[in-house]
Write a protein that binds this DNA or RNA. Structure first.
Lengths: 165, 165
DNA sequence: GTTTATGCAAACTGTTTGCATTGCT
DNA sequence: AGCAATGCAAACAGTTTGCATAAAC
């Protein structure tokens, strides 16, 4: 007989739960040292880390955590919606924490195609978000989509790079 | 003595020249059969072709054109601004002609993360473009960037995929 | 004790590069 | 003739996978 209120099967699709550790375990995933270390790095260094960046930062304290684990953990985290997987067209993915517990500010990206510098901007975000919401509503209806995410990125040359030939 | 009006050195940075073939040759690049074939495929099948897609379509008529040439040509084309290199997070790049000679319509993309279906939408484009221009102006000034391009993409599940768990 | 997570090495995939040859102009 | 473009094969880079072992629960 099944006990009340207990998920026997891990619930791999649960979003909208509490925060980090709680959310993690609540979804049926195990909280290991490697995963804690990765979460730690992500919340300490807020912004655009590649798998290898994370590996480098985790490795000193946890030499036994391999790159594979980094990839697998990031995959879990982004499925849980805890982490955004970003792509700036460099041929490698980058990751950032979706939201701090206090609800970090939403931002978009400005990418220099010369030196790959990336600027998070929050200017104009309000207007953008407003318009995006409307667009999202319209697109959802017209194309019968369940829209979960969006990307806005500007590309160009930063002040240093636009000088060079 | 240098002849008037003739570029002895190929001008690899020339944008804003006439159209396609003219532009191509005008920039010091040679117009070869392979390149013509690739341009042909791009203008016939408007939208989101991967390098391999293009290879497949070019190959029957030009069995001697290899994948390497496809990549190299696409690189040239996107440097010339004739082709946009798109990234939908599938781990492969996709390409589309920037503008037809008649000035094809600007559009953005709606991507299904379930089946990778991609919808070009032009709805709301006017409002978006308006806002983007302003944002672009603001960002250019504030961060001293020379902005050349932007991306807007919505991600979600299409009507078929949102049913399946 | 059962099931998930990990490390390692090897496999994969899309893309790039070196070099000798071909082909525009 | 001279230099750019090509094909081929090999190199590359980031990411994924198979499998035996270790660790959470």
């Amino acid at each position: 007989m099944m006990k009340q209120g207990v998920n026997v099967m891990p619930d791999r699709n649960c979003r909208g739960r509490p925060w980090l550790h709680g959310k993690f375990k609540g979804c049926g995933y195990r909280l290991t040292m490697g995963r804690e270390a990765i979460l730690g790095v992500l919340s300490k260094h807020a912004g655009h880390l590649s798998a290898e960046d994370i590996y480098m930062k985790v490795h000193p304290g946890h030499p036994n955590v391999g790159l594979t684990t980094i990839y697998r953990t990031l995959d879990v985290l982004s499925n849980l919606g805890l982490v955004y997987k970003l792509d700036f067209g460099e041929g490698r993915a980058r990751y950032e924490l979706a939201q701090g517990p206090k609800g970090a500010h939403h931002h978009h990206h400005l990418v220099c195609t010369g030196c790959n510098k990336i600027i998070d901007y929050t200017d104009f975000i309000d207007e953008e978000v407003e318009l995006l919401k409307e667009t999202e509503r319209g697109l959802s209806r017209k194309y019968d989509f369940n829209i979960t995410n969006h990307i806005i990125q500007f590309y160009g040359l930063c002040e240093k790079c636009k000088g060079k030939k």
